[in-house]
């Protein structure tokens, strides 16, 4: 990041605004200042902090406040060899009941978390998107179901990196 002063100003203003929103929500919910993670039900803000994390564990913790266990009920579709790291089709679905969220992480990228989706009541536990990958590595899908976290991983070989100029 080249972090010009105006960028910083915008960013800090947003963080402040978000802070106010979080406090307001927390206030209504009865001052729950425990570490429930950005995706806790009462919190509707963009999980800025989770998107800044470098490691998989930190990103999952920042997002959900807990850890995930591997599960074959999380289905992750991604190509074996990406045609171009700039556009890697990735889809995630799950047969688990009560899915409330799906997150996709790419630990080989500068920031691990790529996307986080809220699966609202009535919405199918499935999402497809296209992601950038800097280099060969795992794609990790995390599914939140019934308050617990489940994950699956798949290696994608990247021969043409998705972060070049």
């Amino acid at each position: 990041m080249n972090g010009s002063s105006s960028d910083r100003a915008t960013l800090s203003r947003r963080v402040v605004l978000q802070g106010i929103a979080t406090i307001a929500v927390a206030g209504v919910a009865g001052l729950r200042f425990d570490l429930t993670g950005a995706f806790a039900a009462a919190n509707d803000a963009y999980p800025e902090d989770a998107f800044r994390q470098k490691s998989e564990a930190d990103a999952i913790k920042a997002l959900y406040g807990k850890t995930a266990e591997a599960s074959d009920k999380v289905r992750l579709d991604a190509p074996e060899i990406a045609e171009n790291g700039a556009v890697v089709p990735v889809s995630v679905s799950s047969s688990l009941p009560d899915v409330t969220s799906i997150a996709i992480l790419v630990p080989a990228n500068p920031n691990t978390l790529a996307a986080a989706y809220r699966i609202l009541p009535g919405t199918t536990a499935m999402v497809a998107n296209r992601l950038k990958m800097a280099k060969t590595g795992n794609v990790i899908a995390v599914v939140e179901a019934g308050g617990k976290l489940y994950s699956a991983a798949k290696e994608v070989k990247v021969t043409i990196g998705g972060c070049g100029g």
Partner: peptide
């Protein structure tokens, strides 16, 4: 959808 910068240019989404 909450996205970081690792989502591809001209983002695509299916649900």
């Amino acid at each position: 959808a909450d996205w970081g910068p690792a989502v591809s240019k001209d983002p695509y989404l299916k649900f």
